[in-house]
Design a binder for these strands. Structure first.
Lengths: 399, 399
DNA sequence: CTATTTAATTCGCATACCGTTGAAAATATA
DNA sequence: TATATTTTCAACGGTATGCGAATTAAATAG
């Protein structure tokens, strides 16, 4: 355990204040004091230090708390957008999405490269990612030197702490030290994170979990991922591993083990389609789900059947997750949601059946169909969170 | 989030020092300083305060660190056994087990009441528990006034924070505020906790997980429970709920939902036996598993079949848990282990099949057949842990 | 122009940690 | 036996932190 000294103490309170400013927009010191339970004295000292470091800015205008504003007007504080720049990326099998954000997490530029990269050699993938990062940074009118951190969100089992990719559907190899590789190429600190964790943080910061400290997110894409928010923090497994939901076992069928991925993986749902023709082409180009959506509307029975089976499998898996974590909300994201009503209905039904009676009503299911940018923005948030924590003031006094 | 002030700082370091003393037996200040990374100055101050509060004791004798001990001999410090007394209990359907322990967690007296209590009215159960606590305390040569805290470990979904029993196989009602009830009856602070959590802490403190900060425990009893140790702390669900493994869904069979409890619950394994005769009598008395063990040795095929099916179900469930938490060790406890090789073999096989290849070898399975005392001792440890954290020095200066 | 109200800063205090120094308690050596 | 050596531990001074009370700052109301 880390030893508690004054430095840690200040680090905690600093992060607390900074996070309060981030979450509650332009905010006055008095209100920060109320929210954090810190004395106004301490808040003044910390905000002075944050101002000095250029992480926040004062705004004298917006004191509109009340018409009958009597006393000295409040000075509102907000994050200084220019305090840092980060790049966030979503790396998927058939597309790369990049965003550059400022210190607040606001998107400055975005770039989508619809390229199929899975099963390419690492060098090729690294080339493409490097290129995407550089182009997106240029699009934002910046240079890579202006970027503080890059965070890459990708599917699979990612060990955040070490930057190792234990296994990922887009890499042929296992145990790739992708963080070091990209850090060297970009000459900018680069971290890797599970894409599911990235969008979990995205929802906590900007999306449908802003009001919660605990929740669970399930991502239904090529792989099936899990993000757990516990006490306002990403819960990473014992070793900092991300969770790979697709490996969950749903049953022992006649043909052996039945894993969730074999029922609800993107390729498995679409895979029952004829292996040639326009649909196969669409899949190859990463438009499978969009196409599937059209087919389902046209009442393609094979596909509807697959969607229903997938929905059942996911519904049961969610019930199991809820049994373990009992979160107040479960957010579902990912391309498979595009399968529409047949999928969602069977999911909801299976969930309702599978959830134990004692937990009925505990968790609320929320479906979210954000775009890829949002995932990339989540990766940026992961990078920003680490910046917030890092000691700007090496440890100097508050002056 | 709690605000960081000097008080919190000292509380953290105090707990850290106290826990180091607890874990590493009689230990000198220098060694505490090495282990905690705190300066010897700080360690001296904190230990002085602990000595002053009577929580620890000096021992001048045992300085045998080395034959060639040159300088001033070390003064070894250890927990003062008499600093507190707690009662821990395991409350199961057909027996009540109590222990009184001292401040170190050493058992002073134990008491087993082989009574079937499930489905009794709350008042009756409370009577029996109260009686057991009082008798066990008397057996230890103490009075209830000498007891600081009582902790009751029981199966089911327990909300530790509020002391509510959301649902438990031994209560007919749900949402019982058992902690308040027993606190009032005993006139001693009483907390409730999941029995699985209790034995998880028992293993972390005294058993097969002393060397780990992360692990998972699975309890196979009348109900199937889960305990997760994360960063040396019990991981309680979002709402402080305990996990009820039996509700996990293993598949959608022809007859609807198949839950783990229907495959591996104690009564389900034994339930396939004829409903009358000596065996049924044994079950009613809570000796079902012991009896089953004998029958399995005698090659009772019905029972062996049930054991094998249960093992498969549990093996798959464990694989799923490992997929989610990736712990270095999984400890299995509970009466069902008594089913012996048929059960364990099929469990191991199913686990090996179900564990995803990328996680193969990550987690080590450990079987543990401790007695009921150990569970009760774990409950005592839960109580002690809260005592360790509580502010003895309301916040006075260190003198 | 003065009184009032609210916001934010300044000042003094208490606490906690740390590094250094020095005292205490034992052994080793002359 | 007397002195040196080694190790442990407590005491002193320095610095950082947060908090409460008093003070200054900036606006409105009368």
């Amino acid at each position: 355990m880390k030893t508690a000294d004054p430095e840690l103490m200040r680090a905690i309170n600093r992060l607390n204040v900074l996070d309060t400013i981030r979450r509650h927009g332009p905010i006055a010191r008095v209100e920060i004091s109320e929210r954090t339970q810190l004395s106004t004295t301490t808040v003044s000292a910390i905000t002075a230090s944050l101002l000095d470091d250029g992480l926040i800015l004062p705004r004298h205008e917006g004191d509109i708390r009340n018409e009958a504003a009597r006393g000295r007007p409040r000075v509102m504080l907000e994050l200084n957008p220019d305090a840092a720049r980060v790049v966030g990326a979503k790396i998927a099998a058939n597309r790369l999405v990049f965003v550059v954000t400022d210190f607040r997490g606001d998107v400055l530029s975005k770039l989508t490269l619809p390229i199929r990269i899975d099963r390419q050699p690492i060098g090729v993938i690294a080339d493409l990612v490097e290129d995407g990062v550089r182009r997106c940074v240029v699009d934002a009118g910046l240079s890579l030197e202006d970027v503080d951190t890059v965070c890459l969100g990708l599917p699979g089992v990612i060990e955040h702490r070490t930057g190792q990719i234990r296994s990922s559907p887009i890499f042929r190899d296992t145990n790739v030290d992708f963080a070091s590789e990209m850090t060297a190429r970009l000459n900018t600190p680069t971290i890797v994170e599970s894409d599911a964790h990235a969008i979990t943080l995205a929802h906590h910061w900007f999306g449908k979990a802003r009001d919660l400290e605990d929740m669970v997110l399930i991502s239904l894409e090529q792989t099936l991922g899990l993000g757990v928010l516990h006490d306002n923090q990403l819960f990473r497994g014992a070793g900092g591993l991300s969770h790979n939901l697709g490996d969950l076992v749903l049953g022992m069928g006649p043909r052996g083990i039945v894993r969730l991925s074999s029922q609800a993986g993107e390729s498995e749902i679409l895979g029952e389609q004829p292996a040639s023709g326009r649909f196969a082409e669409a899949i190859r180009l990463g438009r499978g789900m969009t196409h599937a959506q059209a087919l389902i509307k046209a009442e393609d029975n094979t596909l509807i059947g697959a969607a229903i089976r997938a929905g059942e499998a996911v519904g049961v898996a969610i019930a199991n997750i809820v049994t373990l974590f009992a979160p107040p909300r479960v957010i579902l994201v990912g391309s498979s949601l595009a399968l529409g009503e047949p999928f969602l209905d069977s999911l909801r039904n299976a969930y309702a059946l599978a959830i134990p009676p004692s937990l009925k009503g505990v968790a609320e299911l929320v479906f979210d169909d954000s775009t890829d940018d949002f995932w990339a923005q989540g990766a940026a948030a992961v990078a920003l969170y680490e910046l917030y924590e890092s000691p700007w003031n090496t440890t100097g006094p508050a002056l």
